[in-house]
Amino acid sequence: MTALLELKNLKTHFMKKKANIPAVDGVDLTIQKGETVALVGESGSGKSITSLSIMRLIPSPPGKIVDGQILFNGQDLVTLTDDQMCKIRGNDISMIFQEPMTSLNPVLTIGEQIIEVLMYHQKLNKSQARTKAVEMLELVGFSRAKALVDEYPHRLSGGMRQRVMIAIAMSCNPKLLIADEPTTALDVTIQAQILDLMKDLSKKYDTSILLITHDLGVVSEVADKVVVMYCGQVVEEAMVEDLFDEPLHPYTIGLMGSIPSLDDDLDRLQSIEGNVPPPEHFPQGCRFAPRCPHAFDKCRSALPALMDVEGGSRKVRCFLHGDKEATS
């Protein structure tokens, strides 16, 4: 397996007048060809900013990629010009978003919104693009695709709109699909359908998926590998079975503990004390230390490195594991 996407020490900061806000602070992440990687974390952990950085769609100013590399097929996206990046966006890397209700342009027909991508990237003419658009809509499960092409988005439900978004995103057969909380705004039954659809398409076209979510249920269903983020850093990385069998980082353990289970008869759900600190008030030392039940003195003074554990099959950023001395 070769790496399709490799983030190396990615730092995306927001330059505010008073302070430099490190929303993404040295993230390393690898996605293999055809692999589905879930990026997990609470709100404010920097997972959405990581995905927008890959797309080079950080609102700038104030946002800026200040350091690191984004290697896509060996090419560093950070160094590309805007024009070069436009050729990759929507073609090699495409993205679907959390809010299907507002992500489609209300004044353009559904067909037009698919056709324009095909004409732009694939250089199809209008009638070829239209035929392909109908095919794409059929592919994502619309039975009356021919009629749908001329409909406007407001006639569709949230789940249907997300299917349209997937049709748009997959229309140029991208190598990587970034899905930013694609099912958060949907009903539970629709969630499962959308996830199944994404899984099927990724298998069929060998598309890698970077799935951003805070829903561990979703993760267990579709992901091959899980990357847990906290305060702009990766705190744990493992294959999905390993992570669910035995989470190592206290934060991951906390996240797992807050999933309700039918088997255990608990009165209260476990929760992680406190909140994610805002980026301008990240603690010294381990960023999770103030909320960690196992924190000791060293955690509060030094930041642990992301270390290989269990023979390099997984990584964790915690002094309780691996090499007890490695700091970052």
Partner: peptide
């Protein structure tokens, strides 16, 4: 500021096209 503008950007269109085609009509 709308989401569909971000969608249009994510399709790889240049800013000018996004603003004039997707923004102006709205």
């Amino acid at each position: 500021k709308q989401d569909y503008i971000r969608t249009a950007m994510s399709k790889g269109f240049k800013e000018k096209k996004v603003v004039l085609k997707h923004g102006l009509r709205n």
